[in-house]
């Protein structure tokens, strides 16, 4: 893909993220109906769940790129997988932070170890945080790329476990909004959620392209410095 096309993609995604997230936050705070049970604090749902789903999407994307690396043996997939894990961890931090704030507002605790959904998300987050320790403890090259790719692929197994944990739990306080009968909320709430989800996905896409472009330029500058030394 040419550099100008990649730049255009980044600009389009950034503009989409700005528009969708701006509209999503406005809809969430001023238009969506107030939840009868939780009141205003339920509006955290519109940022917490899209951010969590975006973290899963980033980890899934990283695993896809890792699979491509192992399958096609093309070096560029290593960097792409790494950048996706990096973004997934950032969205993971945001999921834990917004989730804690919501837990405090709803259950009056910042964290509870009794909830499988929370603990499994924390395990997933810590697993991918350890990816960086692995990456920076091995010399750059084919071996490191393969090790990181296998690690990213193993991590993706935790995603369905984390996602389904809440549905398999016998006793839980974490709410179940999406079940086999579809979304358990009003249409206006679901529309707001979809706009916020599209916004966070576009934001992740824009950051992915910008971060990737930065890392590629950095690598070229390093090569150029070696040539001119």
């Amino acid at each position: 893909m040419s550099t100008s096309l990649r730049n255009n993609q980044s600009v389009l995604l950034a503009a989409a993220a700005l528009g969708l997230l701006g509209s999503g936050v406005a809809l969430a705070l001023f238009w969506a109906p107030e939840d009868a049970d939780q009141g205003f604090s339920q509006r955290i749902f519109y940022i917490h769940v899209p951010v969590a789903l975006t973290a899963y999407a980033c980890f899934g994307w990283a695993a896809w790129k890792a699979l491509r690396l192992l399958w096609l043996r093309e070096e560029r997939y290593d960097l792409e997988s790494y950048v996706a894990v990096h973004l997934g961890v950032i969205f993971g931090v945001l999921t834990l932070a917004t989730g804690s704030i919501w837990a405090k507002a709803s259950w009056d605790v910042w964290w509870t170890w009794g909830e499988r959904q929370l603990v499994l998300f924390l395990v997933l987050f810590l697993f991918y945080s350890a990816y960086f320790m692995l990456r920076y403890s091995v010399e750059p090259g084919r071996r490191r790329a393969n090790l990181c790719a296998v690690y990213a692929l193993f991590g993706v197994v935790l995603i369905p476990v984390s996602f389904l944990a809440i549905r398999l739990a016998e006793q839980f306080i974490h709410p179940v909004v999406f079940n086999a009968d579809g979304p358990q909320m009003e249409d206006s709430m679901f529309a707001t959620f979809l706009v916020c989800l599209a916004g966070t996905l576009a934001l992740a896409g824009a950051l992915y392209h910008v971060e990737l472009a930065g890392k590629r330029i950095d690598a070229r500058v390093r090569r150029l410095r070696e040539l001119l030394a």
């Binding site: 205003f40 604090s41 955290i44 940022i47 917490h48 932070a97 704030i101 507002a105």
Partner: peptide, 27 residues
């Protein structure tokens, strides 16, 4: 401002602040 409103605004502010910090790092 109610406690629920404070928590909701705090959650949105955390996301905004993180995105801004990320932008500063990229800059």
């Amino acid at each position: 401002m109610s406690a629920g409103e404070r928590y909701a605004f705090a959650a949105y502010a955390v996301v905004l602040a993180t995105v801004l910090v990320y932008l500063v790092i990229i800059a």
